[in-house]
Design a protein around this nucleic acid. Sequence first.
DNA 1: TGGTACATGTACCAAGTGGTACGTGCAGTC
DNA 2: GACTGCACGTACCACTTGGTACATGTACCA
Lengths: 206, 206
Amino acid sequence: MATGDPTTPDVMTPDAGTAPSARERLLDAAVDHAARHGVSDLSLRQLATALGTSHRMLIYHFGSKEGLLTEIVRRVESRQRAQVAALAGDDPTSPTSLAELWDHFADESLWPWERLFFEVYAQALQGRPHARGLLDEAIDAWIDPLAEVLVARGTPPAHARDDARLMLAVTRGLLLDLLATRDRNGVDAAMRRFVALTDRRRADRD
Amino acid sequence: MATGDPTTPDVMTPDAGTAPSARERLLDAAVDHAARHGVSDLSLRQLATALGTSHRMLIYHFGSKEGLLTEIVRRVESRQRAQVAALAGDDPTSPTSLAELWDHFADESLWPWERLFFEVYAQALQGRPHARGLLDEAIDAWIDPLAEVLVARGTPPAHARDDARLMLAVTRGLLLDLLATRDRNGVDAAMRRFVALTDRRRADRD
DNA sequence: TGGTACATGTACCAAGTGGTACGTGCAGTC
DNA sequence: GACTGCACGTACCACTTGGTACATGTACCA
């Protein structure tokens, strides 16, 4: 009460070494909520009541709405990275097939996350500051692991990074399609065409 | 003054036959503003002052904020369709090359529109009602014209629609990449790889 | 000249916003 | 057992939001 400002805890310290529990639980729940309802018309109060707390607590833990959004984006990012790691390091002896990869991403259980990803991505493209972080990793972080997968499948290393970039674009583009049309069959057919293209080339050894 | 409600002009009539000028000018300016600043944190007041009018006028002409947003989206849609028409009908004797197509879309002058497109697309994926319209046309409207272009280039008709869907995904995916990284060279390289893939197959006549 | 329909601005409203001030319970520690 | 700092809630603030009421200007038509 006498101390200058007992509430807002410096904005820097709480996430450093201490406070593993409460804030973390809140963040998890917030990310979950964001995946279900989107993030662009999110209000602290609605979110707080949905999470069973008060908007004061969100400010307390995350400093501001921007801070909370930034943290949500960071978590989405880390989920993305975890997926990269999973697909790259997951048994390098048997190279993952592109079809497997696609099956993974196209699974309906991931749709809310992918919707959220594209939403934040779009906000980042419009310069919204809290989303900036996503942009830096959105491409680069994927190219190397994808290139590894491609090389393991026979792509000549000289073209691996370009092909990986293309592969990433195909995946995201078809994901946009899938989320809009929900036409899994149609999108699968398009992906099969892409796989056929690359396989044909692989047979030609170029 | 005695008449029931002289202001809000029924919400249905103003855009039908009458009022070609003022509302149209406002809408154009609003779309322009949206392309520059995005649409997700747009407020009627800010927009109105930016356009040199009062937020009352926006309500008057478009009924509500939702109405205005819907109209903006419609206009973006129509721009999209115009581009489809342009690339499809523009001299069918000399089939457009995929590289030309890509050069067109990757041009920096279109970036604001593409940012806006992805922003609205993402909002549509999250179920925002004003954006719904975009979703219906976002895929279907492109496949047929693109398939035509592909067939003209030698793609077997049996696969044309799947390939067109793939082509659309590649374009959008690489556009997402380009808007984020601004790395025109890198993205161009990836697109060249795709073109090479399709060309190789064309030589094989499959 | 008067009236009528459209166009536009000003003032206002209730609701919701992010953020703050402040009080309070509950650990742990001396 | 008093003190201390964290975690949390309540009440509040100034402000912005979308939308409305109403007055007024302007142009056309009789």
